[in-house]
């Protein structure tokens, strides 16, 4: 799995609360059976003026120049600054796939939706929860200063601002470990095969009705 160690990049502010997964990647792009290629349709409905079609080229589509992603100063951004409850709505992993494919490695917000959070960890994207006040200040600084960047380091759990100021963030050990080492969590779980088999045997004894007849 993809690792996350450090990221030093331009910050793009998305000044909107409750950004849902339909907004991140509209459903027509979910018809793909691949994991890649979603970046060009990230925030499709806000980003382009016409309706996006799956499997279609995006070069030449009319851009919504008001949308942050299209503003020259945020080109190449790899850190997304967002508002509360980012990633709410559906469980589609296409949302982190699109963020990742576009080039976002890290999202900072006061809160994230639950399933989205897990989905990001599985894709090597670091989500950082900071207090609303701290996020607000970052928004102000990003708006004020063109080329505003942050340096994020997961090992030391710090964000460093352009002026050298450091902000600490918390992350659960389990998630930190997975991100830092790019672990394959299926292999990790399969290391506990004996435990799973043991549980399954006991559980089937205790609740045989939960195990359907084969071929039923």
């Amino acid at each position: 799995m993809k690792k996350f160690e450090k990221e030093d990049g331009i910050v793009m502010p998305l000044d909107r609360a409750n950004v849902d997964t339909d907004y991140i990647i509209p459903k027509q792009f979910l018809k793909s059976i691949k994991r890649t290629g979603f970046g060009k349709n990230l925030f499709d409905e806000a980003r382009y003026l016409d309706k996006g079609l799956p499997d279609a080229e995006c070069t030449g589509r009319p851009l919504n120049t008001d949308f942050v992603l299209n503003q020259p100063r945020y080109q190449g951004a790899s850190i997304l600054l967002a508002r509360e409850n980012f990633g709410c709505g559906s469980s589609r992993e296409h949302a982190p796939w699109a963020l990742d494919d576009y080039g976002f490695r890290c999202v900072i917000a006061p809160s994230f939706a639950d399933i989205f959070f897990n989905n990001c960890v599985k894709n090597g994207i670091l989500l950082i929860v900071l207090e609303e006040k701290t996020v607000e200040t970052m928004f102000e600084e990003t708006f004020a200063e063109e080329g505003y960047r942050l340096a994020v380091d997961i090992a030391s759990q710090t964000i460093t601002k352009p002026n050298g100021e450091q902000i600490a963030f918390t992350i659960e050990d389990s998630r930190k470990n997975v991100l830092l080492n790019g672990l394959d969590d299926i292999s990790l779980t399969l290391d506990s095969k004996t435990d799973i088999l043991g549980f399954e045997g006991r559980w089937q004894q205790e609740s045989p009705w939960l195990f359907p007849q084969r071929n039923s």
Binding site: R35, S90, S91, R92, E93, P96, I115, N118, N119, K122, N123, E172, S174, D185, I186, L188, T189, L190, S192, I196, E200
Partner: peptide, 20 residues
């Protein structure tokens, strides 16, 4: 509850989920 596609693969392969 709902899960993402990586977790779909995880459940298929292990019959388990890692959760808090």
């Amino acid at each position: 509850h709902g899960i993402g596609t990586s977790e779909v693969e995880h459940v298929l392969a292990t019959q388990c989920l890692v959760q808090k």
